[in-house]
Amino acid sequence: MATQNETNERIDYETKQRFWGIVRSRYVVHALIFVTLFAVLAPLSWMFITSLKPNDAVLELRYLPRDPILGAVEAYGGALITKGHWQAVLNSFVIAITSTTIVMALGTPAGYIFSRYQFRFDDALFLLVIVTRLFPPIGLIIPYYQIMVWLGLLNTRTGIIIAQVYLWLPLVIYTMRNFYITIPHSLDESAQVDGCTDFQAFRHVILPLVLPGVAASAILTFLFTWREFLFSFIVSSDLRAQTLPVAIYQYIGDIRILWNSLSAAGILSVLPAVLVVFLFQQYIVSGLTGGAVKE
Results as ranks from 00 to 15, higher is better:
91 N>C: 11
92 S>Q: 00
94 V>A: 01
95 I>R: 00
97 I>T: 08
98 T>M: 01
99 S>V: 05
99 S>T: 01
100 T>W: 01
102 I>P: 13
104 M>F: 05
105 A>D: 10
105 A>W: 06
105 A>Q: 08
106 L>S: 14
106 L>F: 04
108 T>F: 02
108 T>A: 15
108 T>C: 14
110 A>Q: 08
110 A>T: 11
110 A>W: 00
110 A>L: 13
111 G>V: 07
111 G>R: 04
111 G>F: 07
112 Y>D: 10
115 S>E: 06
116 R>Q: 10
116 R>S: 10
117 Y>I: 15
117 Y>D: 13
118 Q>N: 15
119 F>Y: 10
122 D>P: 13
123 D>Y: 05
124 A>C: 12
125 L>R: 01
127 L>P: 11
129 V>I: 14
130 I>M: 15
132 T>H: 07
133 R>A: 13
134 L>Y: 02
135 F>A: 13
136 P>A: 08
137 P>S: 09
138 I>T: 06
139 G>Y: 06
140 L>Q: 02
140 L>D: 09
141 I>S: 06
141 I>R: 04
143 P>V: 04
144 Y>K: 11
145 Y>I: 09
145 Y>K: 10
147 I>G: 03
147 I>T: 04
148 M>C: 05
150 W>E: 10
150 W>Q: 12
152 G>C: 01
153 L>E: 05
154 L>C: 04
154 L>S: 09
155 N>Q: 08
155 N>R: 02
155 N>D: 05
158 T>A: 11
159 G>R: 00
159 G>P: 03
160 I>C: 00
161 I>F: 00
161 I>G: 00
161 I>H: 05
162 I>M: 09
162 I>N: 03
162 I>Q: 00
163 A>R: 03
163 A>Q: 01
163 A>L: 09
164 Q>C: 06
164 Q>W: 03
165 V>H: 03
165 V>W: 01
166 Y>P: 10
166 Y>C: 10
167 L>I: 13
167 L>G: 04
169 L>Y: 02
169 L>F: 02
171 L>V: 07
171 L>Y: 01
171 L>I: 08
171 L>W: 02
172 V>Q: 07
172 V>L: 07
173 I>P: 15
174 Y>V: 13
174 Y>S: 14
174 Y>R: 13
175 T>P: 11
176 M>S: 04
177 R>G: 11
178 N>I: 10
178 N>G: 14
178 N>A: 11
179 F>D: 07
182 T>L: 14
183 I>L: 15
183 I>E: 04
185 H>N: 14
186 S>F: 01
189 E>T: 12
190 S>R: 10
192 Q>N: 08
193 V>R: 03
194 D>M: 13
194 D>S: 15
194 D>L: 15
194 D>I: 15
195 G>D: 06
197 T>V: 15
197 T>H: 09
198 D>N: 12
201 A>I: 11
